[in-house]
Design a protein around this nucleic acid. Structure first.
Lengths: 241, 241
DNA sequence: GTTTTAAACTTAACATAACAAGTTTTAAAT
DNA sequence: ATTTAAAACTTGTTATGTTAAGTTTAAAAC
């Protein structure tokens, strides 16, 4: 760590080290499952005290980015794509359901104002919308609207979204997701929604809005999904913390 | 810290310190909101290095038991009764709302089958139901059904449920809650529910079923609450761990 | 070749020291 | 009395050691 870092001061050294580690992960220098260099090697690379390095690493272990084991080493933790937390969002009644999606829209626009605001996208930049209907054994069960900033949207259209889940594409190209907030509520189906889902207008639907952040704390994805309430339940495990 | 602790070895010192701190909290020696002694005082009391003491304290801060602020001190964190996890269940639009409840039913019965099953109550024992309508500034916004095993129900009716929240009564008499599961879904209001909530029949409502467990891992409370969707949002914070 | 042993790695735990940066208390100045 | 400044607290950050405890590797013994 250079002197000017110590002198600029405001940002603690261990946080700067954290950022360097995160950068190595985001640039795929260290990939999920990889062992990062040992403490002694990182001490040489970063030129900080062991205390400081361990503070940075332990912090990332706490946040679920790294995983350390005594004697073995420290590796970048592997997470299933898009899976955050312990909640199991989708609880359909049958296991044998065949899932697939029917794409409704893939569109860049300046006018997705709510998503633009949540994603912190400047007004002169477009937002990408990816809209699908999710089917289970031929029945439509949910409408998914998936918004991302322009540069991520371009990544997505380059991939084959008919074949790959957007979460998987993002995590392969844009680093892993670290944190998200869900807002769960209920709405009455509009005639158009009822039409898509094959239900009567006014039926109750579960609405889930999600805002996801990457390990660099920047918003990655805003989505709104509405589920048929008769096919869906959202489970949350709660504990003190 | 005595020598035999260091020599028995297996349990790290900082974990032993953690246990001592927790013991002080459990025995109400240090109460929620209290500032615990400063680091220098605890160093004298425990006879360990600052590193070790801070490791114990920081660990408890991470777990949400303590809360430290530079320059001020470290205090035992206050958890609102019945509040588990980071989700903030109730997000009504205005801050100035005056909340109160109107009691509908307080009843012991053998026939609350769903609750009986979830609470693991034997068939020859009654289940207690406490049913209310929650009001915000005069508007009804939710119907709350609160089920407990018989012995807890008896505690509740002895307290003044017009004055005290059942969660608070339980945590004062029956220990704190440790874990809970929420199931969130959506339903259409029945005519009776619409009547109670002052809305049209068929309106969308958010339905939350909760099963709570105490420190002894036994079920304490099963509840079902339905909220007017226009006044309610359920927020969940998700993170890797 | 196989097993055993020791060495060389890894992270975990603990102590001591010094300084920085907030907050409160106290004493001084007005 | 009020304001100001200094001192005395508090937790936060960083450095430098040392020893312990797992895991892997390499050498030695068979």
């Amino acid at each position: 760590m250079e002197d000017q870092n110590k002198e600029t001061g405001r940002i603690p050294l261990y946080r700067q080290i954290k950022q360097l580690i995160i950068h190595n992960i985001q640039t795929k220098h260290w990939k999920p499952g990889d062992f990062i260099p040992s403490e002694s090697k990182l001490l040489d690379e970063f030129n900080v005290s062991r205390t400081t390095l361990r503070q940075a690493i332990n912090s990332l272990v706490q946040e679920g980015v790294l995983e350390s084991r005594q004697g073995k080493g420290t590796q970048v933790k592997i997470h299933p794509p898009g899976k955050l937390g312990e909640h199991s969002t989708i609880m359909f009644q049958e296991e044998g359901d065949q899932f697939y999606s029917r794409i409704l829209r893939m569109e860049f626009s300046f006018t997705f104002f709510q998503a633009q605001k949540h994603l912190n996208v400047p007004e002169n930049e477009k937002v990408f919308l990816f809209e699908r209907v999710r089917m289970a054994d031929g029945d439509p069960i949910a409408i998914l609207q998936f918004y991302t900033p322009q540069h991520i949207g371009e990544l997505l259209i380059k991939s084959d979204l008919h074949e790959h889940e957007p979460y998987a594409v993002i995590e392969e190209n844009n680093g892993i997701l670290k944190q998200a907030t869900d807002w769960v509520s209920a709405v009455n189906a509009t005639p158009h929604e009822a039409d898509l889902l094959g239900i009567r207008g006014g039926e109750s639907l579960v609405s889930i809005s999600r805002l996801s952040y990457g390990i660099d704390e920047k918003p990655v994805e805003f989505s709104r999904t509405i589920y048929r309430a008769d096919r869906f339940s959202y489970r949350v495990e709660l504990a003190h913390n």
